[in-house]
């Protein structure tokens, strides 16, 4: 990956800078130029303002990766999770500073700035967010910690109608 390609995303990958639609107040990460929730998309054009995520979140699903993505060979096995933030967006990232076996759905986490991967010995070093536990791991039977019940779409389209 070229240096510019990674560098231009640093405000988001380093500082969790997202965006909020002034029309409907929904928050997006990474930032979007157009709000997918507003009925008429063009209403949101020019009305997406920068919005800072807090970095707090809760694990809503996870896996332990053994067959890694390129550049992550030295990190296996690693826990990869979907993390729902209190502001709304869900992020994909690693959960570290905890044994992968102890990661659970419902674990509360906080984003932290870490090295993601290196492009070989002489290549670019990529930095960005990973997640660390912000409390002791919950018991494994903490079912229903995050409500994921949402209506299914219809044949004519999705919820944004």
């Amino acid at each position: 990956m070229s240096i510019a390609r990674f560098w231009r995303e640093t405000p988001r990958r380093y500082n969790l800078g997202g965006s909020r639609c002034l029309n409907c107040t929904n928050v997006y990460f990474p930032p979007r130029a157009v709000c997918p929730s507003c009925t008429a998309h063009r209403q949101s054009l020019g009305k997406m303002e920068p919005f800072q995520l807090s970095g707090e979140g809760e694990v809503i699903s996870y896996t332990i990766v053994h067959d890694p993505a390129e550049g992550f060979e030295m990190q296996v096995p690693y826990a990869l999770a979907l993390v729902r933030t209190p502001e709304g967006p869900v992020l994909t990232g690693q959960v570290v500073d905890i044994s992968p076996e102890e990661v659970r759905i419902g674990l509360t986490v906080r984003a932290t700035f870490r090295k993601l991967r290196e492009e070989g010995k002489a290549g670019v070093i990529h930095y960005g967010y990973k997640f660390t536990p912000s409390q002791a791991a919950p018991s494994p039977d903490r079912r229903g910690a995050v409500a994921e019940s949402v209506a299914e779409p219809t044949a004519t389209g999705n919820a944004a109608t």
Partner: peptide, 15 residues
């Protein structure tokens, strides 16, 4: 961030 295609499907499986 370290996601692989099987890793992403595994997230669906776990949930």
């Amino acid at each position: 961030f370290g996601a692989t295609l099987p890793g992403l499907w595994a997230l669906m499986a776990r949930r």
